[in-house]
């Protein structure tokens, strides 16, 4: 999508025109406006409390220290939060990739009664805002005894309507001959799914995977609803808790936010285009 190289380098004539300089300056200013807050945050996490609170804020830490990190991790188990988030998001992503692709295969390559009706039923759930189901879901999870459990964080998010939509869309583009050839040769449906459909859908799977993982990693509302045990908090919930319980300890709060942001930014730097494509194509965030 963004690899299109046929577009022009510049719209006008020269390469280093006055206009080019202005454009670059504007672009740099915008980029700075978007990114400087993060730099400021990371640098602040290495400043002692007094320096952050001084009325003349510094950008570069004068009294460089890592004590914010040691204090923070001794107050709240942030490593645990990080691992919780990683675990929950990975499981949710894998499960959704599996259910979406399996349903996508069924809707793309099979004919059966009421197919479109079932499909529409699933797809129409895309228009249900989370705010509508969040309270009933909370009571349902409570009745199932899954408050304060990893299972409760995962179980409402095992099937994703958009994922099914996307995978059907994509798998309809896989030549039916390949599937038929497999069937003629006596391959089972699961074999065809696993060995033919999945390998041919890697593009769609990676976009969907990126989107689901980020969405799950960043989500706050649901963990906030059902998690009250400290050791089960996810990273966003940990950061929010920090902001409430240690509101005056700005050094700790900033450090917590840094822990929440830096790993995901590193990941983003490594795979910028894949992630941008994943979020943009799925277009639902």
């Amino acid at each position: 999508m963004f690899e299109n190289s046929s577009a022009p380098v510049t719209m006008g004539k020269g390469n280093l025109s006055f206009e080019r300089v202005v454009l670059t300056l504007v672009m740099l200013a915008l980029a700075a406006g978007m990114f400087v807050p993060f730099i400021w945050m990371v640098l602040s996490s290495f400043k002692p409390y007094q320096e952050i609170l001084s009325l003349k804020p510094t950008l570069w830490p004068k009294g460089f220290t890592v004590s914010n990190y040691t204090t923070l991790t001794s107050e709240l188990p942030f490593l645990r939060y990080f691992l919780n988030s990683a675990g929950v998001s990975s499981v949710v992503t894998l499960v959704i990739l599996f259910t979406s692709s399996l349903c996508g295969y069924v809707f793309a390559k099979f004919d059966f009664a009421y197919k479109e009706m079932f499909f529409m039923t699933i797809i129409s759930s895309m228009m249900v805002p989370f705010a509508v189901v969040v309270l009933p879901l909370y009571f349902l999870i409570a009745r199932l005894g899954m408050l304060d459990s990893y299972l409760g964080l995962v179980i409402p998010f095992m099937v994703n309507a958009f994922g099914i939509f996307l995978m059907r869309q994509f798998m309809e583009g896989v030549p039916g001959d390949l599937v038929d050839a497999g069937r003629v040769d006596g391959a089972g449906e699961m074999w065809i799914y696993w060995r033919i459909m999945l390998p041919l859908s890697l593009n769609a799977l990676s976009a969907l995977g990126v989107f689901v993982f980020l969405w799950s990693w960043n989500s706050l509302w649901w963990p906030f609803m059902i998690i009250s045990k400290s050791e089960l908090r996810t990273l966003p919930l940990g950061i929010a808790t920090l902001a409430w319980e240690y509101a005056t300890r700005v050094d700790l709060v900033i450090t917590g936010a840094t822990i929440g942001v830096v790993p995901i930014l590193i990941l983003f730097a490594l795979m910028t285009r894949t992630i941008v494509r994943g979020v943009a194509l799925t277009g639902m965030k």
Binding site: F2, S5, A7, V9, T10, M11, L23, T24, M27, L30, A31, A32, M34, F35, P37, F38, M41, L214, W217, N218, L220, L235, P236, L237, I239, A240, L242, A243, V253, I254, G256, A257, G260, V261, I264, L265, L267, F268, A269, T272, R273, I275, V276, V279, K285
Partner: peptide, 27 residues
């Protein structure tokens, strides 16, 4: 307007979206 450097700018502009809103809010 940018081709070779687009990835860098894209990274800056898109960075806040991939971050948890909780962290953005705190920041």
């Amino acid at each position: 307007q940018f081709r070779r450097t687009q990835r860098f700018y894209l990274f800056c502009v898109f960075a806040p979206i991939v971050c948890p809103s909780a962290a953005i809010a705190v920041l």
